[in-house]
Design a binder for these strands. Sequence first.
DNA 1: GTCTATATGATGATAGAC
DNA 2: GTCTATCATCATATAGAC
Lengths: 199, 199
Amino acid sequence: MNESRPRGRRPGRADTRSEILAAALTMFSEVGYEKVSLRAIARTADVDPALVHHYFHSKPELFAEAVLSLPLGDPSVVVSALLAGPHDEIGRRAVENLLDIMEMPDARERFSAMLRAAVSESGAQRPLSELLSKEIYSKVAEGLGHTNAKQRGDLAVSVVLGLVLARDILQLQSIGRMSRAQLVRAIGPSMQFYLADHW
Amino acid sequence: MNESRPRGRRPGRADTRSEILAAALTMFSEVGYEKVSLRAIARTADVDPALVHHYFHSKPELFAEAVLSLPLGDPSVVVSALLAGPHDEIGRRAVENLLDIMEMPDARERFSAMLRAAVSESGAQRPLSELLSKEIYSKVAEGLGHTNAKQRGDLAVSVVLGLVLARDILQLQSIGRMSRAQLVRAIGPSMQFYLADHW
DNA sequence: GTCTATATGATGATAGAC
DNA sequence: GTCTATCATCATATAGAC
């Protein structure tokens, strides 16, 4: 019934369905959509491959349920919160908010899986960048009165995706080792520049 | 002999080998490594599938020859050139240099193909980020005397890859429409901040 | 709910005729 | 150089026994 399970790596033994979902999220985020087989997911979850089809009809549906069944927070709330605070620190607060979201359970795995899928699906599927740009960052830039809000929003998206890409997918070590405070200090100014500064 | 053809779909007819290489680069950059089949490449090149194996032994070898047979410029030359100029404009010049390289024949397709491959290969293959970080941007930050040169270099890499990702892979329209001058003005300050500024 | 068996198709790769 | 034919392997997906 899709109750709130203790996601990530479950220590004890949950029900089969949850096992599959957890294994799917892990593998989609680490290996990517195309390259992962349902057999491999079943093997990781230690269940029979046929059960994957039994619970989830197809691979796309499994992906949708395992990684897209979000809410990673309400976008409009984020926009309001950012615009409510001091505008000369909006970049810093945007990064802090992003890192907050990425620290939610499974969030980094889901970001990685979505980005990997968006990259390998050749433009067809890009819920991540669409969401980030249209629902959040472009709205913030628009709220600040910029005429090129869409452009600014997309640049902010490139910062976010560049971070996920470098840290969680390509696993550049020196970025992975940066603390939250370091990331805010490093990336905050870029976000501030893209979203708010005059140029 | 791999002369500078008018890329995309070539109108005239070159020799078979070049046809295959051109089709492979196009499809690797647009569809990604895993998802592209040798049959599909052969179909695009309008040749028999067996010829792909005849000229290039395997899929990895075809990928290597079609997209990795670079030189996209000598990294050490880039580093020297950047460090030789005024340090308070090194970010702007780094972006200009990057855009210069990306305007070379096939460069954008090759960047896209390499990034797509790096993403779908799950860490195994990342010549792009390694090259950019170790050979160029970390060296620049190091040349400027920073102790956290590696970290700065990797952040600069995240900017570059974020741009390629947003513009050439996810095809965010408002970034794709930005002129060279606009990109320099927008991204230059971020590069300056990461590579040179004190923080 | 779980698993065996299997249908169906696509893939990378090879051998060999012309 | 070019193509036909084929192999072995893997994939997603389904039907049905227990």
